[in-house]
């Protein structure tokens, strides 16, 4: 019996909750989807879980800025519970809108524990100025392999992005240096061979081609691409061309499996 219990949070405008929970279940976790109102009413419910997921979507319409209002709400209403969740070494993932929530809340990059709720990076409007849905290659940061969510993953993976505000920008060059030095840059946009490049290889103009980062412990991951959209081989845009018979899962599922394995080993 798996010990992994994932809480998928949803609110007005969340729209990837069902498939994110499905991905956790396929990976062997118990997964529950809970509305933010219920969670705020019953804050201690968070204690039952060891994985927290903020899925993709348009929380509160992405009014003001993507993820901003949910970040504001969680920061004000669940501050202690979030601090405790993180300090106990539990796992957090924010995908797309969830990543936006995590950076705007200041749960990432979290260089040290004291920096909780202090935003240091942002995700802003794509260089194209609008929403883009396309598949991209991601290159794992080769140096430290710090992130528990990506431990068992090939160097290059293929996932879709679907966002308007995914351009990663650090507050300063110091912040970027620190992210690099700590090995917190989990994914960079690249081509199939691992070469970095301009649009469309880097689909949104992210600084240093950054597509995903983790905190300094490797337990909190935020990423713009959608791993839950590549858990079946039929989601691959060219499965009729290049997916080998018998390979029934997509590479994105491994990210959820890594988390489940980590929890079960702990």
């Amino acid at each position: 019996m798996s010990k992994a219990k994932a809480l998928v949070i949803r609110t007005a405008g969340t729209n990837c909750d069902v498939e994110t929970a499905h991905a956790f279940r396929l990976a062997g976790a118990f997964a529950d989807v809970m509305h933010i109102n219920s969670l705020i009413k019953n804050k201690s419910a968070m204690k039952k879980f060891n994985i927290l997921a903020i899925p993709g979507g348009f929380s509160y319409g992405d009014d003001i800025a993507s993820g901003k209002i949910l970040a504001n709400e969680m920061k004000h209403s669940l501050k202690n519970e979030l601090s405790e969740f993180v300090s106990r070494g539990k796992l957090v993932i924010g995908i797309c809108n969830g990543f936006q929530v995590l950076v705007k809340m200041g749960l990432l990059p979290l260089f040290t524990k004291d920096e909780l709720f202090a935003p240091k990076v942002t995700l802003t409007l794509n260089d194209a100025g609008h929403y883009i849905d396309r598949w991209i290659y991601l290159k794992k940061d080769p140096v430290k392999n710090l992130c528990v969510w990506t431990k068992q993953l090939p160097e290059i993976i293929y996932l879709p992005i679907a966002h308007a505000e995914g351009k990663f920008v650090p507050q300063s060059s110091e912040v970027l240096k620190k992210l690099r030095a700590n090995g917190q840059i989990v994914f960079r946009y690249s081509d199939e061979a691992g070469n970095e490049g301009a649009y469309p290889v880097n689909p949104n103009g992210s600084v240093d081609n950054i597509a995903g980062i983790c905190d300094s412990t490797g337990r909190i991951l935020g990423m713009m691409p959608h791993p839950e959209r590549h858990i079946f081989f039929t989601q691959h845009p060219r499965w009729q061309r290049c997916v080998k018979k018998g390979k029934e899962t997509g590479i994105g599922l491994q990210i959820f499996r890594n988390a489940v394995q980590f929890v079960n080993k702990a």
Partner: peptide, 23 residues
């Protein structure tokens, strides 16, 4: 036009509006 639409949410996409070697 097509790329401005989310054609993959709900995770059920099998044959997308754009296909082929370069999607």
């Amino acid at each position: 036009i097509i790329r401005q639409y989310d054609h993959e949410v709900q995770a059920g996409s099998v044959l997308k509006p754009l296909v082929g070697a370069e999607n």
